[in-house]
Design a protein around this nucleic acid. Structure first.
Lengths: 172, 172
DNA sequence: TATTGTTATACTCTATAACTATA
DNA sequence: TATAGTTATAGAGTATAACAATA
């Protein structure tokens, strides 16, 4: 079964201008006057999963800063790179978004000049998606940065533990 | 250090009417004509984290169906329950959202008649948040359902493995 | 009739900024 | 001057529904 990237998990938002904003604690750095009781929240897998992903997203956005690429767009970029000529609709399905959502994503990638739509030779309704030269270059750069990012995410565990983590995550 | 629930990790959206919609694959059940190559995506911790959370969110929304409670609102409900009289702003900080976001969440909980704002005895600018009787009942019900949900999430691993997973997640 | 891309519309989530009452 | 709550506004993300062109 091919893995799927979920809509809800690729969400955090790039800005219109292309520059992701992560205004963590924009309001005030000061901590809440009284410690807050989180009850049973910390015993839930879902809670630790969320916290882990929060930290990971923070690092991801620092990693891709200046590129305008969110996790969702990176996923799309990888898919176009690995499947040159893929149809927009298929991309959307693979990413778990509706066609209109795929439309928006590809529009964005096109406006960043990373991806082009070329008429499909077989189906005059469809377009094939391809990386531009600029898109290829950025993809290569992002692969490097994101591989380093992913290593950082696992730097506090051994290689065995990392494998164990991946296995356990797949069992959820 | 008190745990924090991230804005970006509590995101998936409840509907205005209160009923969460999870139209997974609303477009077509059919699989893409050709298998799609996901490249190196599956070797990233972030990717597996996202997939795991996607599955978890699906189950969470099935679990809370009919209540209008999203993960974010459940978090808020727990915090109000565990910290009766907590100020809205402190709640927002604990949840990692701006004051206006806390406002929206509390408005929602109030419109669901789960939470009330009572004037603070010490500070005439502030309100204390409290569960209503209905809120207490729903919280109790949700605790049961979500505890079961969390057990389901870990049902494919041993108790030791679950503990290991929690430990590794905290190391990210 | 079904599918591809597209557009229009609507909704949630979240942020910033300005306003008010109070501290 | 700073803070608590509020309101207005804006942008991202995603969904559904309808449409034209094509299969």
């Amino acid at each position: 079964m091919p893995p799927r990237i979920s809509r809800s998990l690729l969400k955090p938002a790039p800005r219109a201008s292309g520059e992701p904003v992560r205004t963590r604690k924009a309001e005030k750095p000061g901590s809440p006057p009284e410690a807050i009781d989180y009850g049973n929240l910390g015993n839930f897998i879902g809670y630790e999963l969320r916290r882990a992903q929060m930290r990971l997203y923070d690092d991801f956005f620092r990693t891709t800063k200046g590129t305008g690429i969110s996790p969702a767009l990176y996923g799309a970029l990888v898919l176009v790179e690995c499947n040159p000529g893929v149809q927009q609709g298929h991309l959307g399905k693979a990413l778990g978004v509706a066609r209109s959502g795929a439309m928006t994503m590809v529009d964005r990638l096109q406006s960043l000049e990373l991806v082009v739509r070329r008429p499909s030779p077989h189906d005059r309704r469809a377009y094939g998606l391809h990386l531009t030269a600029k898109g290829s270059r950025l993809a290569a750069e992002l692969h490097r940065r994101i591989a380093a990012h992913d290593r950082r995410m696992g730097e506090k565990m051994t290689e065995d533990e990392r494998r164990q983590l991946m296995l356990l995550l797949r069992r959820i």
